[in-house]
Amino acid sequence: MFFDRTSSIVVIALFACAVAGYFIPDWIMNQLMFGFARALAVLGLLVLWRTGLISFGHAFYFGLGAYTVALLDINLGVSDVFLRLVGAVLVSGVIGWIVGFVLRNYRDIFFAMLSLALSMVLYGIIVKTEALGSTDGFSISAPTFFGFAPDGKYPLFVFICVVCAICAVAVQMYLNSTLGWMTTAIRDNEVRVEYLGLSVANAVHVKYVLSAVLAGAAGCLMAMALGQVDPDSMVNWTASGELVFITILSGPGSVIAPFIGSVVFELLRTYAFEWAPHAWQLIVGGTLLTIILFLPGGVWSVIEKVVGKKS
């Protein structure tokens, strides 16, 4: 196996968070839960970005994951966290695999806009369909763990930390594998990769499914953390935009970056809203501008500078 330094840092940091969660006030734990849940979707975008691909519609899979949880709950009474997660991963993975046959042939703006179009179709369907909760969405029953229904949000927080740790380590291993390494190679020169004997389309397809599954899992965790799903915050193009925003804020440098970037985003948005309820978009937008102009490597590049380039 190739469990490297970055993987160790991820596991230790998320373990520390899980322990600390027991002692911190609920509102901080909530921020962390939202941040970490969303970070998984951002991790999915990071995987695509390493090949120079950007999706403006990744809330498609985020929404699929979230709505899978809601529909399992409402129609089948499924409340177990594992079953919900498996359901969300399967739905987003299978749909990602099917969609991947088309998207793997596109690059750049075409890839980005096809993704966006897809998410708008899903949004349209949900909003028009009463059985899918229409514009109101659903609220979801509290999660259970192997039949236990503990009080409070702490168990869910621990679960989110564990899922995030597993996903981040898995992505790190993927990036260190031959297939993951081809990521950079494909971004650099597809013709050369093809002539060396590797199918670029297949490599992109694998990557696409991986990013779909991560976003699906993220949607599942977010749905449980919020206790509800709704089309505007989870499927609409603004939700996709948010994910792209956090990806740029985080930077593509490391699998750790999305977790930091997402939490920074949650805090930024919360405080911006408190300080300037009517102009919070201005603050968030201004931050994005600053990042793109002065910190193209995102928050991660600051950390790299402070800690030293190690991972």
Partner: peptide, 13 residues
């Protein structure tokens, strides 16, 4: 790439 065979792609680079 040359040493790749199927699941071999998941080996460490």
């Amino acid at each position: 790439i040359a040493s790749n065979t199927g699941l071999g792609a998941l080996r460490q680079m």
